[in-house]
Amino acid sequence: MWWRRWSVDDSKRLIMNEQLNLYGKNFNSRLLVGTALYPSPAIMRESVEASGAEIITLSLRRQSPEQQQGKMIWDYIRESGCQLLPNTAGCRTPREVIALAEMSREIFQTDWLKLEVIGDDYNLQPDPYGLIEAARELVKRGFKVLPYCTDDLVVCRRLLDVGCEVLMPWGAPIGTGQGLLNKYNLQTLRERLPDVPLIIDAGIGAPSQAAEAMEMGFDAVLLNTAIAKAQNPVVMAQSFRLAVEAGRSAHAAGLMVKRQTASPSTPTLDMPFWQQSSSKALQD
């Protein structure tokens, strides 16, 4: 039968084959998660597993990395076997970022870096100027830079110009759970930068918002607070995994185009079709 050709198994394979490629490395999961704010390290690790994430971010700004005083927890995170993505959370200037990046590279033996340069302390908004400056220097030093940026097309282009191969625009400010606040800008980014891996980073509060980002064609989603602060982080991690998969396969399947009016998908049989459009008016 015709529909057999498009069974769930086929479509699953279709999507599974299409891996996420970042800096030449392939990943099956399109959900990246953070490792902060969990009730305990044990719950963090269980949540990471449940999320299916293969890339996890971690911060070492405040843990006196030069003395390796956080070694115990870093080793615990490392045991997950995921690609580590050290971040520069808490840095405000390119100089701070570069010092921390070098330290991260040494400690975690990876040149992957989530670049954060904070421009405002209250909403932790990225500083686009500092970001571009830091990215340029980090790329020169051989880092694989994944910048956390705003949804501004020009800023994103400049980041690509200085050598970033992946961009991570925000959905909303960090930790707010507001979802995709400026869909117009995000849609613009997706359309204008069709070949650049775009990861929605920050602001995702609910699985539906993650699914929405994936439906819009973004390549992946990065989040932390929404899982870590859930009443049951492990179950929430699983929910996000399912949402990201659903959103991705929905995007691949091709969403229907929204219509202007609600219309029954089969004609109402007892009414001539030329009267159906006015039937609602008659009922009123």
Partner: peptide, 14 residues
Amino acid sequence: EIESEDMSPISVRS
């Protein structure tokens, strides 16, 4: 609450 075994004095940030 910092995931570190550092016993040095309080930081300026904190």
